[in-house]
């Protein structure tokens, strides 16, 4: 059981590293602000929340930490949940503000709902 938790945690940390890499690539390569925002959120949700949960599982599976493992796991889970909530709301706020202030040009690559408004 402990080994299982340990490996789940380690795999989640690796997934986080990959997500961070893809987020960074997306930030550089994506064409406009809104799509780059998606890449940034991949970086925070995939690259910060998933590894934080991973650290929590990893700590729960590590017996050599003694009683400290519950403290570490609890801190990482709480931090993970805070980042999970804050990152999505932050991305929403950024997109909302950018659209409202019209600072960013709206140049969609593909807009299936074009003409459906009104």
């Amino acid at each position: 059981m402990n080994e299982l938790l340990f490996y789940i945690g380690a795999i989640m940390i690796i997934i986080g590293g990959i997500c961070d890499l893809f987020g960074a690539l997306g930030l550089l390569k994506f064409p406009n602000f809104y799509i780059r925002l998606h890449a940034a959120t991949v970086g925070t949700i995939g690259g910060a929340v998933v590894p934080l949960f991973g650290v929590g599982f990893l700590a729960l599976g590590s017996d050599f930490l003694g009683g400290m493992k519950y403290a570490i796991a609890g801190a990482s889970f709480v931090t993970g949940i805070i980042v999970l909530l804050a990152a999505s709301a932050g991305a929403h706020a950024l997109a909302y503000a950018a659209h409202k202030s019209k600072l960013v040009k709206w140049e969609p690559k593909c807009d299936h709902l074009e003409g459906d408004e009104k």
């Binding site: 805070i82 909530l85 804050a86 999505s88 709301a89 929403h92 706020a93 909302y96």
Partner: peptide
């Protein structure tokens, strides 16, 4: 700001 942000802010 929008309802989403306000609700999340309360929780956070």
């Amino acid at each position: 700001l929008t309802l989403v942000i306000k609700t999340v802010t309360k929780v956070i």
